[in-house]
Structure formats: structure tokens, C-alpha cells
């Protein structure tokens, strides 16, 4: 059997992390192609529906990228995102998601390398964790 390749969905804020991901490209920071980016204006605009839907539809990990505290272009969106993720994790724990499949990370526009490293590490971690348990229920 081929090695398990985790699928990561990343919701990135327009100003910081998305731009940081662009910078990773400009500077050719290599990372595995397991991540798919969904571009939003702010980490505070990541709805729990998106994250839950991603997990239910088989994402092995979800990355939410926002500006560092104090740097949010919309003042406080990142703090709101942080609460939302905390609540989500509380729910997911009950569902048996004890591992960290949802990662909130502050990555600035100048941290291309950090973005690449974050994805690389996340892929490694998810490989260790194994597939999203949701997929065991599939008949695929």
C-alpha cells in the first residue's frame, strides 16, 4: 500500500498568511503538495461550518492561518478566530478527535518559511496520526 498522503485544507487570511504563502513561493520554500488553500479576507471569517465540513468530507487536517496578535488588518479578527477554534476543538474532542487535526497558526506576510515549515510539519504529524477517522466510515 502506498504511504498515506494526508489532505490538508488551509483557510488563509488575505493580508498575512496568504501573502506569507505567496512568499514561500517567491523564495522557493519547498513543502509537500498535500495542502489546498481557500482564500478568505480574515481568519475571523473562517466559519465553523467550513472546518467541520472539511473534516466530514475527508480532510485529514485543517490549517487556519491568520495575522499575529496585534497585527490583524481588521483589528481583532484573529482573536475571534482563536475563540472559534477553541470551541470547535471542544466539540471535536467529544467526537473522538483527540489529536490536533485543526491547527490555528499565526503566520505573517514575511514568514514564507514558517508557512512552508508549518505545512511540512503538519503533513508529518498527520502521517503519524493516520487518516481522518471519518474516512474509515467510507466505502471507498
Amino acid at each position: 500500500m502506498a504511504e498515506f498522503e494526508p489532505r490538508i485544507v488551509a483557510f488563509l487570511c488575505h493580508w498575512c498568511t496568504y501573502t506569507g504563502a505567496d512568499l514561500a513561493g517567491t523564495t522557493r520554500q519547498q513543502y509537500p503538495p498535500n495542502v489546498r488553500v481557500v482564500h478568505l479576507m480574515c481568519s475571523g471569517a473562517v466559519d465553523s461550518i467550513y472546518v467541520l465540513k472539511a473534516l466530514i468530507d475527508g480532510a485529514d487536517g485543517v490549517l487556519i492561518g491568520g495575522c499575529h496578535p496585534g497585527d490583524c488588518h481588521y483589528q481583532t479578527g484573529n482573536y475571534k478566530a482563536r475563540r472559534r477554534v477553541a470551541i470547535l476543538k471542544g466539540i471535536l474532542q467529544q467526537m473522538g478527535y483527540t489529536e490536533d487535526r485543526v491547527l490555528l497558526k499565526w503566520i505573517s506576510a514575511s514568514e514564507g518559511k514558517l508557512f512552508a515549515d508549518t505545512v511540512t510539519k503538519m503533513v508529518d504529524d498527520l502521517k503519524k496520526m493516520g487518516p481522518n477517522p471519518m474516512k474509515q466510515l467510507w466505502n471507498a
Partner: peptide, 26 residues
């Protein structure tokens, strides 16, 4: 979705209904 998951239960949103409702009001 059916392709990806082999088969899907219909309606599709049973699980997500409970989870979203929970995220809204828990």
C-alpha cells in the same frame, strides 16, 4: 461526494447538522 466516499448517506447533512448546531449554541 459519492465517488470520493464510495457511497453517501442521504440526506448528507445529518452529522454536520448536530455539529454546527452545537458550535452555535453549546
Amino acid at each position: 461526494w459519492a465517488d470520493r466516499k464510495g457511497e453517501i448517506r442521504m440526506p448528507t447533512d445529518t452529522l454536520i447538522f448536530h455539529l454546527i448546531r452545537m458550535s452555535h449554541m453549546v
